[in-house]
Design a protein around this nucleic acid. Structure first.
Lengths: 136, 136
DNA sequence: CACGATTGCTATAGCTGATAACGAAGTCAG
DNA sequence: CTGACTTCGTTATCAGCTATAGCAATCGTG
């Protein structure tokens, strides 16, 4: 069957992203986390007291979409929110959150390492810079 | 703000894919097409009489999800379906479909060319092979 | 012929992302 | 200080894509 699509970089990019995202999601699901959860938890861990808005800006998640996301991980006991001033609330990891993040990190880091290994050596160093050029 | 995420290839991959997909979707929207439409139309153009199942397999779209997709582009007058045997139907482009695909192709090809140009020369040749290694 | 596989389809559900609108609270210029 | 503008968190809603389960009809093969 003739299929010219794989020779388009943009198409290959989407397919590769879908394939890897699905695999990571499945692995993270086994520790009860989603990709977005881990991203948020990492940002909160690195920036204690950060606001929901700032997390959203860093991850390109709209404010409105942060609401259910944060509610879920708060309900799961992973983060705590406490007022900074009248309108902002700072996010921090709970003890449970730290433990779950540690689990999530192990999954993510193992996965990232596998990803890199899948790329032939001669291309490896070029992947990240090329992707960053497309994204930023 | 500390943000270690961009140094993960998997994360950069997802961000790059999201960013480029959003941009392409917006451009294709201006000619009334979606990415999936164009993918299907290209496959049908290259393989006249192909079945919905075969298209789905090539694009990794489940049979069930092909139904509304094909219905939409059929209702738009872009493809025609005619029985091959009792259970299969072959897909073909209509004249309108060929014209719209030509428009879509121009958009896609211009976009792909821009994508490649965004990547610094020294990394360009490595992008597609690296992505294919991740995907397949 | 009979059985397993395939095709196309319905129905349904979940996740992600986007938009619009709101009240409350902060910020800043004059 | 005050008024204008911005920011924060939130509700509500919608579109798109993907996934699963099940079904009837048909096909291909032993």
């Amino acid at each position: 069957m003739r299929d010219p699509l794989p020779s388009y970089p943009g198409y290959a990019l989407r397919r590769a992203a879908n394939a890897t995202a699905a695999e990571l999601a499945s692995r993270l699901g086994q520790v009860g986390l989603r990709q977005s959860d881990v991203s948020v938890l990492i940002l909160v861990a690195e920036n204690p007291g950060i606001t929901a808005s700032a997390v959203g800006r860093a991850l390109d998640i709209q404010r409105a979409n942060m609401v259910p996301l944060l509610k879920r991980i708060e309900d799961a006991g992973l983060i705590a929110r406490e007022p900074i001033d009248g309108k902002s609330r700072g996010l921090d990891l709970t003890e449970t959150g730290r433990e779950r993040l540690a689990q999530g990190r192990r999954v993510v880091e193992a996965f990232e390492a596998e990803l890199i290994e899948r790329v032939p050596v001669e291309h490896r160093a070029h992947l990240l810079p090329a992707l960053e050029a497309l994204w930023r």
